[in-house]
Simulated assay, not measured.
Amino acid sequence: MSYLQLDAVAKHYGSRTVLRDVSIDLKAGEFVSLLGPSGCGKTTLLRIVAGFDQPDSGRVVLEGRDISGLAPAKRQMGMVFQAYSLFPNMTAQENVQFGLRVRRQDAAAQQKRAREVLELVGLAEHAQKYPHQLSGGQQQRVALARALAISPALLLLDEPLSALDAKVRVQLRDEIRRIQQETGVTTLFVTHDQEEALSISDRVVVMHDGVLAQVGEPAAIYGEPANIFVARFVGAVAELPGVVADGSGGMVTVLGRQVAASRARGMAAGTRVYFLLRPETVRLGPPDAAGMLHGTVIARTFFGALTSLKVEITGGTDCVTAAMASGDAANIAIGSTVSVNWDPDSPRLLVA
């Protein structure tokens, strides 16, 4: 039985359709990310789960109970926003105790629970500080502690890391996952950041234009995109036009040359496809080596341990990108002619 069920949820604002019959099931203790570009409907869906917006049709069911008509305060959900929304005149501990005070818990119980969750998020020693005395990351931890203090049935996180700098964002991302696993709270996380979603989720829901483009485990979303939108949105990908040349032999014609792609097996000859290569699957070699394709290195980007090399394929303007160890890439200069290879199992093919 699903712990949280979104059943054919739809939402319209005038003539604009924001959500189109969205259905998702979450298991108890699961961490699920809603991933997509701005305007795809992910935050609207989260607000419907929280009760801040009402669906035009469909249901929100929590532990078998339809809560679609319940006010937010009746749903026992903890929510963390992009804006920290802390009370500036309250200490960290008082902010964390706020939800417990609203629920009329006695003072001793409030203080005990606040200390527990501040310890959980690593802020016990900052309990008596006011928000302006805390860093952005610490303020967001207080917001997370406040959401957890009420022992929510569901934890909702709406782009909670986007206002933080890169290093703090990664640290807090990992902390959120640790805390979620430690507490076992079922969590719905909204983000537009593919790396965030892939790194901490049990499952990822990719949304596009108000519908579900794909739902699956992170490895499946990245490695087996269901459609061209998911392939383009989740991670870097080289996209070349192709036509299946030999469905039994796994050969595809790409830029006038037959190349190997195992996933072509069983496809009808003549089928037009998107021929997709992830940078980490591309291998570059000397120009005189036998290769699937050949090209010229036109750009390089250094990322520390890895360097990205962009190669324009000979005979056209299409490009592929290779992610290589920086030590190996150092010997390949811009302007070099190279052979381009990959394992036949690497390319993903989507019908064009």
Rank of each mutant, 00 (worst) to 15 (best):
M1N: 08
L6P: 09
A8K: 15
A8N: 15
A8T: 13
H12N: 15
Y13D: 03
S15M: 12
R16Q: 14
R16F: 15
T17D: 13
D21F: 11
I24H: 07
D25N: 15
L26H: 00
A28M: 07
E30Y: 01
V32W: 00
S33I: 08
L35T: 08
G41Y: 05
T43N: 02
T44C: 05
I48K: 01
I48C: 11
S57C: 13
V61D: 10
G64C: 09
D66K: 06
G69Y: 02
A73K: 14
K74T: 08
R75G: 00
Q76F: 04
M79H: 03
Q82N: 05
A83R: 15
P88Y: 09
V102S: 09
Q105F: 01
D106G: 02
A107I: 10
Q110I: 05
Q110F: 06
R113I: 06
E116S: 12
E119A: 15
L120T: 06
L120E: 09
L120V: 09
L123K: 06
A124W: 00
Y130Q: 03
P131S: 07
S135E: 00
Q138T: 00
Q140V: 02
Q140C: 04
L144R: 09
A145Q: 01
R146E: 00
L148D: 06
A153H: 08
L155M: 10
L156S: 03
L157C: 02
D158Y: 12
D158Q: 11
L164V: 09
A166H: 11
V168C: 14
R178A: 08
Q180K: 07
Q180M: 08
G184R: 00
T187H: 05
T187V: 01
T187W: 01
F189E: 04
H192S: 04
H192E: 05
D193G: 12
I200D: 07
S201A: 13
S201T: 10
V204W: 00
V204I: 04
V206H: 00
H208M: 14
A213T: 05
V215H: 02
E217D: 08
E217M: 12
P218W: 03
A220I: 11
I221T: 09
E224Q: 14
P225K: 06
A226V: 02
A231E: 02
R232M: 08
V237W: 01
P241W: 06
P241A: 05
G242H: 10
A245S: 15
G250E: 07
R265H: 06
A268R: 15
A269V: 08
R272Y: 07
R278M: 11
R283H: 07
V297W: 11
A299K: 12
F302L: 06
A305I: 10
V311G: 03
E312A: 13
T314S: 14
G315H: 00
C319V: 12
A322D: 08
A322N: 11
A323L: 13
M324Y: 01
A325V: 13
D328H: 10
N331V: 08
V338I: 14
D345N: 15
L349A: 11
L350C: 12
